[in-house]
């Protein structure tokens, strides 16, 4: 039996097909989000089934998650990304006690109980500072590709201080830093440190280890190092961080099939 998780995020849609026999990922994909979120997710879902030779009759329950979860009409159930993220990380990093999830438009912190359930969480979905969008904006301003930001930041000897809480004003600060002759490396390091500081402040810095970083921004090299530096604790990047939430949704779909209690919304 294949169970599916669909994460309709603000920037991308992710689908994970979970094989309940092998208890592993049968297929996974990520596509850019569109106006019709249901159609985008559905197309990805259908493509993954087709490309991986899965018999459609073997596809069981589908759980939708993410900001656009209510728009996924082919999902039988919706569960928030908080619960799904915890389930996904529990599967891939069972020992994790804290999850930092930095996505395109928001960032989250989750504290897990010993059994992997959510004990506490906090979200920043109010401003772009501390999110992937912030990183993209500032990388573009520096003329640096996002995937090279960490590499460049690693060359920094004196990370710049980005003090503004607002992404728009932070852009102004970067203009000022560039005009002052501050190196791109120092600014890049400052940008990563700024995001790490925002996320750390949101969590109250009271984090139990092991800490796992997930979400799209976890793919940016150097982000985990910036978080480690701010938090003073090791931070591991989750395997395939973009899909952990969808994976969690698929796992919760499978558990619902087994009659395990799953939260509903």
């Amino acid at each position: 039996m294949i169970c599916a998780g669909v994460d309709a995020g603000s920037r991308t849609a992710k689908v994970v097909l979970f094989d309940s026999d092998s208890l592993g990922v049968a297929a996974a994909g990520v596509v850019d989000q569109g106006i019709d979120q249901d159609a985008v997710a559905d197309a990805l879902f259908v493509r993954l089934i087709r490309e991986n030779g899965i018999d459609p009759s073997q596809v069981g329950p589908v759980v939708g998650t993410g900001y656009g979860r209510k728009l996924i009409r082919f999902a039988q159930k919706t569960i928030t990304e908080i619960t799904c993220q915890a389930a996904g990380i529990r599967h891939s990093v069972p020992e994790a006690r804290t999850i930092i999830d930095i996505g395109g438009q928001d960032s989250k912190y989750l504290r897990l109980n010993g059994n992997g359930s959510v004990a506490d969480f906090a979200m920043n979905d109010r401003c772009a500072a501390g999110t992937g969008r912030f990183l993209e904006l500032l990388a573009a301003q520096l003329g640096v590709r996002l995937d090279r930001l960490g590499e460049i930041a690693a060359l920094s000897r004196n990370p710049a201080i980005i003090s503004s809480m607002c992404a728009v004003f932070a852009e102004t600060e970067i203009v000022g830093l560039l005009a002052s002759g501050i190196t791109t490396a120092d600014i890049a390091a400052g940008v990563l440190a700024s995001i790490a500081t925002r996320v750390a402040a949101m969590s109250g810095r009271n984090l139990d280890g092991p800490i796992v970083l997930t979400g799209g921004v976890a793919l940016v090299p150097g982000m985990e190092a910036a978080l480690e530096s701010i938090l003073g604790q090791p931070v591991a990047v989750a395997p395939r961080p973009q899909i952990t939430c969808a994976l969690g949704a698929a796992i919760l779909a499978w558990k619902s099939l087994n009659g395990s209690p799953t939260p509903t919304a």
């Binding site: 900001y67 928030t80 990304e81 969480f121 979905d125």
Partner: peptide, 29 residues
């Protein structure tokens, strides 16, 4: 404890509040 920070623009963003409530209640379920 669920932190529900409210700004001046929240009326325009009801999903933000709803998502947090749902996540919180899933956590408590």
């Amino acid at each position: 404890v669920l932190d529900l920070d409210a700004g001046a623009d929240d009326v325009a963003a009801p999903n933000r509040m709803q998502g947090r409530f749902e996540a919180f209640l899933e956590m408590l379920a």
